[in-house]
Amino acid sequence: MKKIIHFRVKPRIKEWIIETLIRSSAVIVIVSLILIFLFVGKETLPIFFSSEIKQEVNLNRLFLPQARQNEKFVWQPISTVPKYSIIPLIIGTLKTTIIALLFALPLAIGAAIFTSEFAPTWLRELIKPAIELLAGVPSVVLGFFGLIVLATWLQNIFSWTFRLNAITAGIALGLAILPVVYTVTEDALSAVPNSYREGSLALGANVWQTAWGVVLPAALPGIFAACVLGFGRAFGETMIVLMASGNAAITSLKFTDSVRTLSATIATELAEVVVGSAHYYTLFFIGTFLFVFTFINNILGQWFVQRLRKRLHGET
């Protein structure tokens, strides 16, 4: 009698322990995302609430033009009168991101259309591993390539004033987001049912007309998602821009100037900053800004993916 009870109880306890473990893993995922926001975000609070810090840095100083300085937007945290305008950093980030998108989007989307619609099998077997290889290259290696190899080549061709500039960094950055854009686009294109293609071909359209006029419009939300996710990745990427952009916080719209991005600013300055100083809180403010910005961007990307699913399969 005792033995039977023993058998029945033991598996239940084991089952319960394991189930709790499994359930708590899922909780950890959500909790860690919240913790990231809380612990990065809490270090920005003095910018809003500490009167001492607010004298040095506040939202006005961070974003709005400062009349008393000879230049309106200056990022100079280490000087006798520290200047904390993050506008030049945002401009720098946008410049490298735009170049990266201009470089990566046509290549990645073109290649994705080619592989999913036209490519003979042997070529497809060549493109996919090439993209996967590129996806496996660490960003520090791409940064190295931009800094040592690409910058020298471009300098020899164009003889720019600054060897490291937004274009060099942007192209290297483009290499990093290319696999993301390709994969998401390719997924979207191959999610389009074959009946769409067959219908179009039966009506007398050729392969290109089918791809351009039928498949592409059907997969459009997925391609938007690819662009949005690529943008987010480029906006937050650190090592590439840190190494290949020149890291000068210049407020200009010229793409051949050196730039300093938001992420690279954190990477270069956090190691030397005094914990608890206005500069320290400002760097965490930049981190929170990056987090919130990419978060919203991601939600947008996922919204597009869901639109695609709804459109093609009528489900959410």
């Binding site: 990065v40 996710l229 937050g236 992420s263 990477a267 956090l270 990056l290 987090f291 990419t294 978060f295």
Partner: peptide, 10 residues
Amino acid sequence: GVPSIVFGLF
């Protein structure tokens, strides 16, 4: 999608 540098800050 969180930038890797933000993980560093965290």
